[in-house]
Design a protein around this nucleic acid. Structure first.
Lengths: 241, 241
DNA sequence: GAGTGGTCTAGACCACAGC
DNA sequence: CTGTGGTCTAGACCACTCG
């Protein structure tokens, strides 16, 4: 008569409570959490149960546990950007964070596609960025980024040249928006004339298109990014375990 | 005076012993392992420590734990091939295992590149396969596969048409070679004339090249695969957590 | 030395599968 | 009902960090 499976281990309940704290901003990036025994007291469970919840969150890169120091809310760092969110690698194997050159930055009304991707109404306010990125000294990709205007108020107040290269850290520090997860869809596409020119290629040259939707810990889409990359000297690295 | 960090938790030692059993074939795909208490006795540790080792291996997809039933050595199934090792998805979101049409199958001496990828000497015996794969009813990619001849004796005895579509299951069942891990490198490349013809495209059309090296649990490279895909109606899906 | 997370153990009990 | 893995607890001890 009820159909609910309705059994949820304690440690998952504790984990979900913790996720809520992270999502609400009660625990902010970089902060240290109370120790395991204090958390156990607070949630009314044993230290072992808290530990299992913490380990789950650490496995999802939401927390950072350091023996001897404590448990910290994960933060976007250059390292994380490089190894976790940026998958283009030089064919030689070297990795380096790409430079960026902003082309434009402005507000607009979401077109149908942007609205669909970000879960907004068509015509809702969005922020649009367009930039080139350099791998080594060579311009290797062009990207367009769309953000929901509601979450990123006054984004366009700053001069394009003053917007930092590492956006996820910037979103986190300035807007309290933490990207926790992303989905990328890759295709091979022909370069449009303007892209070809920007990247120093012939029109129609093959580019790797990376279409990324980034989500917060509570599942809201907060960035749509479409990059088109010259992969003559680089590749996208994907590890399957 | 020694420099060795030399502290290895018990559960990792136990895990490594188990990995050796898996690598040696003492535990074979599909087999069930002794229960946790029996393993604990055997290794001379507590059940909790064995559990931690088992959980590690299950997280790496080397074991399959089923409540109420037991712990089993992971096996390559259609499901696993589809969700774990095959990342091309229709733009609609549908996933389906692609059909295959073998074009050629034969022995050869490894060229420089094949030897380097697979860790063989140039001129060592290899098996080469070439096939087309269909997504839906449409030919969507062409791939060339190279295997070390030493591990796949008599592979070419079978008629090309009789080699099954799901290769990893076949490697596992017929040759005792289990693929545990793979690394893929993606690029956008122009179609060569023959590829264009096979895929029904114009020469120079953009293709997604997927260059995959597959490894066994003990780290030997056992397959090099290079696929070139038409991504007009499909994309490569990559999830970042 | 004090405080943190990490490991190891032992035991009780729960949920699930299958006879 | 029995056997399996899964959860929860409690306590001892180890390794790492920092003052």
């Amino acid at each position: 008569m009820d159909g609910t499976p309705d059994f949820k281990p304690l440690y998952l309940q504790v984990r979900d409570l913790m996720v809520r704290r992270l999502a609400s901003g009660a625990w902010r990036p970089g902060e240290s959490l109370p120790n395991e025994f204090q958390l156990a007291d607070e949630f009314g469970v044993s230290q072992g149960t808290v530990r299992k919840a913490l380990d789950e969150l650490a496995a999802q890169n939401l927390l950072d546990r350091r023996q001897g120091k404590g448990t910290f809310v994960a933060q976007h760092t250059a390292q994380r950007a490089l190894f976790h969110f940026f998958h283009l690698v030089a064919d030689s194997g070297e990795r380096a964070l790409p430079g960026a050159r902003m082309l434009s930055l402005g507000r607009a009304k979401a077109d149908r596609q942007e609205a669909a991707q970000l879960g907004l109404k068509t015509g809702a306010l969005v922020v649009r960025l367009k930039r080139l990125r350099l791998l080594g000294k060579r311009v290797a990709l062009q990207e367009r980024i769309t953000l929901p205007g509601a979450l990123f108020a006054n984004f366009t107040d700053r001069l394009p040249v003053d917007v930092p290269n590492e956006l996820y850290r910037y979103y986190e520090e300035r807007y309290g928006v933490t990207v926790a997860r992303a989905v990328e869809k890759l295709k091979a596409v022909p370069a449009r004339a303007d892209e070809a020119k920007a990247l120093g290629l012939k029109s129609g040259a093959p580019l790797l298109e990376i279409d990324r939707l980034a989500y917060t810990v509570d599942g809201r889409a907060v960035e749509w990014r479409r990059s088109r990359c010259d992969t003559a000297r680089h590749h996208y690295l994907s590890e399957i375990v």
